[in-house]
Design a protein around this nucleic acid. Structure first.
Lengths: 211, 211
DNA sequence: CCATAGATCTCGCTG
DNA sequence: CAGCGAGGTCTATGG
C-alpha cells in the first residue's frame, strides 16, 4: 500500500526511534508522516511548527513489513507502524521557491543608497569585507586618513552577540594599526546590547525599512 | 468542507502571500497545508524539510470563501485556494514530547562526572552561572585562590562565536578582579576558532560523548 | 513579557 | 567537501 518511492502523507499509530547526530525515542501515538521526493521525511505531532523527528533531503526510505526505515550517512530513523489511519500519495507537488523581501541584503542596499545620511567623506564601500574573524557586513573607508567605519547589520533586532561580533572586527583592524569605529545599524536593539554599545565604544544607528 | 477549528491536512492548488516580520510571495502551485490545534500552520512544497510558509502556534485561522487567512499579532498569511485535491481532518493527534539524548546538558553532566580528569583542587562547580553578559555553561572555582575556570560547552562543534562568548565572560570576571581562564570543551572545533583560541588565551579541550 | 542561547537546527553560499 | 552565517529561524528557559 505504501510506496516508498513516492511522496506521501501518512497518518498512523506508530512509535519512532532515531539514532545519529543525537538519539531519541518517541512513544507510540498517532502522528503525521510526510515524505518528499528528495528523500526528506518529517514526523509531526499535534502541536508546534517543527517536526518531532525528521531526516533532511538525501535520505533513503525503505519498508520492511510494518517498519519504515529512513537512512542517511550515519543517521537512521525507524518508524514502527501499528495502524494506518490514512494514506495519500501526492502527485504533481510543486517545488517553487519563495521570494522574500526585507532581508538583511535589502537593508544594506537601502543604507548604501542613502549612505550620505550616515557617513561623509567616503572613499570606498565594501560589502562582506573578509577578515580572519569573519566578513564585515558593511565597511566604509574615508578619504585621506582611510578611517574605517565597521558596520554590523541586523535585519531586525540586535542582541549582545551582534556587539561582540563588531568588536571582533574592530579589534582586528586596531591590531592592524588601522583607525576605525564600530557600528550597529538595524531597526531595533535589546536593552542589554544597547548598554554594551555604550560601555564599549560601539555606535548604534537605528534604521528602518523604507516602504 | 474545511473546518478551520480542527486539525487538518489539505492538498490544494493555491497561491500564498505573507506579510509581517518580512514579506513574501509564493506563486500558484500544488502545496500541502498542515493545520494544527495550537493554531500553527505550515505550507510545504515538494522538497526540503522546512515549510515554505508558516505561522507559529497562537495564530488564528479563518476562512472567507476560497481564502484561508491565518493571523498572529502583526503577521498575516493568506492562502488563495483554486482547487482542493485532497482534504483530511486529523482526529486524536498525539502531542507527546520527544526524549533526546546527547544534548549539551548530557555533555555537561558527563564532564562533571569526570571532572577530576580536567581540573584539580576544586571548591565549587556551577552550571549556568549568571553574569550580566549571559550564563556561563560551566564554572569551576578552585580552592584557596578562588581561581575561576570559565567553560563554554558545545554539544558538537565550536566556531568563532563560541570563542567570543567565552571571552565575554572572561572579560567580565577580569573586570571584577577575579583571576580566571577561559575554556572551550566540545567534540570538535573549526580551524578559525582553534586559531582564535591560541591567539586569545583560550584553552580548547576535546571531549566526546561516552557510549 | 523580553532576552538569551540551543538545535539531529536547516539552508544557501563561498572557498 | 568544509566552514560560516542568516533565518519570518523555532523552541525552551530564565528573569
Amino acid at each position: 500500500m505504501i510506496d516508498v518511492t513516492k511522496s506521501f502523507i501518512l497518518y498512523a499509530q506508530c512509535a519512532i526511534s532515531y539514532d545519529g547526530r543525537a538519539k531519541s525515542e518517541l512513544q507510540q501515538g498517532n502522528y503525521i508522516i510526510m515524505h518528499k521526493s528528495d528523500g526528506s521525511i518529517m514526523i509531526h505531532g499535534g502541536t508546534l511548527t517543527t517536526p518531532l523527528n525528521y531526516q533532511p533531503p538525501g535520505a533513503i526510505l525503505k519498508k520492511i513489513e510494518n517498519i519504515l526505515i529512513s537512512t542517511r550517512k550515519n543517521e537512521t530513523l525507524t518508524i514502527r507502524i501499528y495502524d494506518i489511519k490514512h494514506y495519500y500519495q501526492i502527485n504533481e507537488w510543486s517545488t517553487h521557491k519563495i521570494a522574500i523581501q526585507y532581508t538583511e541584503d535589502d537593508l544594506r542596499e537601502q543604507i548604501i543608497k542613502n549612505i550620505d545620511k550616515y557617513f561623509t567623506n567616503i572613499a570606498e564601500i565594501h560589502k562582506e569585507f573578509q577578515t580572519p574573524f569573519g566578513p564585515v557586513d558593511l565597511l566604509i573607508i574615508e578619504r585621506e586618513d582611510a578611517f574605517h567605519n565597521v558596520v554590523e547589520l541586523k535585519r531586525k533586532h540586535a542582541n549582545i552577540s551582534a556587539c561582540t561580533q563588531v568588536e571582533r572586527y574592530v579589534r582586528y583592524f586596531t591590531e592592524c594599526k588601522i583607525k576605525c569605529q564600530g557600528y550597529i545599524m538595524c531597526p531595533s536593539i535589546s536593552k542589554g546590547a544597547l548598554n554594551y554599545t555604550k560601555s564599549h565604544d560601539i555606535k548604534f544607528i537605528g534604521v528602518d525599512f523604507e516602504k
